[in-house]
Nucleic acid binder design. Structure first.
Lengths: 367, 367
DNA sequence: TTGAAAGCGCTAACAT
DNA sequence: ATGTTAGCGCTTTCAA
């Protein structure tokens, strides 16, 4: 692992100037074929690869896009196998971004921010890319605000209006409110339920709030006395907390809700486990729903009724937005996209179809 | 989006030298608190973030590791939902690498190589990272050989000895041969099958070859006349090809094998579909097995007996290897790791347990 | 078509 | 504790 070869080494070995070496890579046509051959040959022999750093520095652009995402790994998921199944948000967004980035000729730099980790994580990313996407609440607002003044940042799944200092960012979110509204409406309308308990989050989360609004709206419209706040707010949205929520809801005051409407799938899954242990049957005794549409939601029994979010697409949209900003004609105004979601009716709400996927194409009913 | 601020701007604004600005970020303690505050304040107001490029250039290290992987997306998987379920190899490796990289303070740069795409993809990655991992057969050998002479590269899942020009690379693979051997032995020994057909790949793939060796060894040991070559070699390992293979095997010469042993899960899944369409029952009429342990293998019905590869772990090991090479005391010799695999017995071979996962913890029998 | 030279923004001695 | 000063490896005018 000797010194890494540079343009100078290649230039010397092929008897040209460093400018020519550079040209061979940047605009091959501007160099005579014979010269090009010689340079390329020398480069090959030396194992030369242009330094992305130097290139970026000299040309002020890196050809790399970034993504900051929270370290979502659910500590409750100890089983490696479950871990596999629970393909996370971030994986899907990564997939979407990588694909789109590649289409546009960019590479993708990813970094997960561990809770309370070094704040400079963003900086680490921001300093190395032409633009980047941030999953909501991954990055300290102040820091993000400062950075985003100088280079394109798109916010994912987050609070568009929430923070006015960030309202100049492009933004992609999913129709949380509408999705939860549709799902709730399904419970009320199609299943005739009247007594629903919503389980949210202690911390303020724009997504969770929006979902709750959808829930409440559906209740209102059905003439159900909808609480102004969730029945329960948990400190984290993990399986363990979901289980705990199920406990609390059951041991309440004897009069158990007909449905537990969870703000995400992880909690709902935890609840299913807890309920099974307690001999409470789903959906016969109580209906359970989630939100997200993680793969695990389809694997559990009963399969979970939920709202699917198009996360891969979100990644793609994010990249398209960034590329647009980076291009000659960036939109003047900040762009805000709201991607549609779909209610997935499965067994946990009493829709029994598609419970046992047939060979190779486990299908679900989307409504 | 005005000019991006630099150390000079921050220095000027806070009335210090650029060296001090640099110190504030590199070794905060070497700067008086008051000064530090002023610098940080100025930086904040300016929206300053240290340029990763300049940093990398000056310090000759980027703090980034890379991964090149093939664009595995199976074109047969048109359904977005299946796509979700089929968490791919690459996703798992990315997960593993990202985690491990973060533990070591590195970020991760990922780039998929589209078949026949620009070869400079590797260069794009190689030029921006301190070291990187390459999934086998992603990158032209010559290019890789040259690059790997100058910086650490670890080969994933590939042909260790295959290419002598690459035998100086660190290398992580899974026990393909042993895994297929164990699985085959299970079929022969526990299920008493004697007539097995192995379905491989036309192209030479070290992994597939290794698996076939395991298959053959198990046959030999059981006194079964094992063909020197796979019963069938398909051009690609997709679901469509798996279905085609099933056809061919069924319509052979009337005497159908008792088991179809596929070189990967995708093909096996395709075969399951085809067999169902033809009214051939699995496992009653014919046993089907796969290899990989992709999530989809558990979702299909009958659930697929297969061999699970620890891909997340592979990603972690790769990073550990890279970090080791980058550290002060790199091992002298190239390191080669072989990760153990596990046979997963499910319904498609006649092991009926664990076919219907119970709530939240779909379990499988690992043997 | 090719070369010379001036940076790009930062780090790392070396001074002070 | 802070400032000065070379580079780091490349791109990019400007000349030739």
């Amino acid at each position: 692992m000797n010194a890494i070869p540079t343009v100078y080494d290649v230039a010397e070995r092929s008897g040209v100037s460093i400018a020519t070496v550079s040209r061979v890579y940047r605009s091959p046509d501007s160099v005579r074929a014979a010269t090009r051959e010689r340079v390329l040959a020398a480069a090959g022999e030396l194992g030369y690869v242009p330094s992305g750093n130097a290139r970026g520095l000299a040309s002020r652009s890196t050809g790399v896009l970034g993504l900051c995402f929270p370290d979502y790994s659910d500590p409750d998921t100890l089983d490696a196998e479950d871990d596999d199944a629970a393909m996370l948000y971030s994986d899907q967004i990564i997939r979407g971004m990588e694909r789109a980035a590649r289409r546009h000729g960019y590479a993708l730099l990813i970094a997960a921010s561990l809770e309370g980790g070094p704040e400079n994580l963003v900086a680490q990313v921001a300093g190395r890319v032409d633009g980047f996407a941030v999953m909501a609440r991954t990055v300290p607002t102040a820091e993000l605000e400062a950075i985003s003044r100088r280079r394109p940042v798109v916010m994912l799944a987050g609070p568009r209006a929430k923070d006015p200092s960030l309202d100049h960012l492009d933004h992609v979110e999913v129709a949380n409110e509408d999705g939860q509204y549709e799902l709730t409406r399904h419970l009320v309308h199609d299943h005739g339920l009247r007594h629903l308990a919503y389980v949210g989050l202690v911390d303020e989360s724009p997504d969770v709030e929006a979902r709750f609004r959808g829930f409440r709206r559906a209740c209102h419209e059905a003439g159900i006395e909808a609480a102004a706040a969730p029945a329960l707010r948990m400190p984290m949205m993990t399986q363990a907390e979901g289980a705990r929520a199920a406990h609390l809801l059951c041991e309440g005051d004897g009069d158990r809700p007909e449905a537990f409407v969870f703000a995400n799938d992880q909690m709902a899954v935890g609840a299913l486990q807890a309920l099974e242990r307690h001999g409470v049957r789903v959906p016969d005794d109580v209906v359970v729903t989630g939100f997200d549409g993680i793969p695990l939601s389809r694997l559990v029994r009963p399969a979970l009724t939920t709202v699917r979010q198009p996360m891969v697409r979100m990644g793609e949209e994010a990249v398209d937005l960034l590329v647009r900003r980076l291009s000659g004609q960036p939109p003047e105004e900040p762009v805000s996209l709201m991607l549609p979601v779909g209610v997935v009716r499965r067994a946990s709400c009493g829709c029994d179809e598609a419970t046992t996927p047939s060979t190779a194409t486990p299908s679900t009913t989307t409504g």
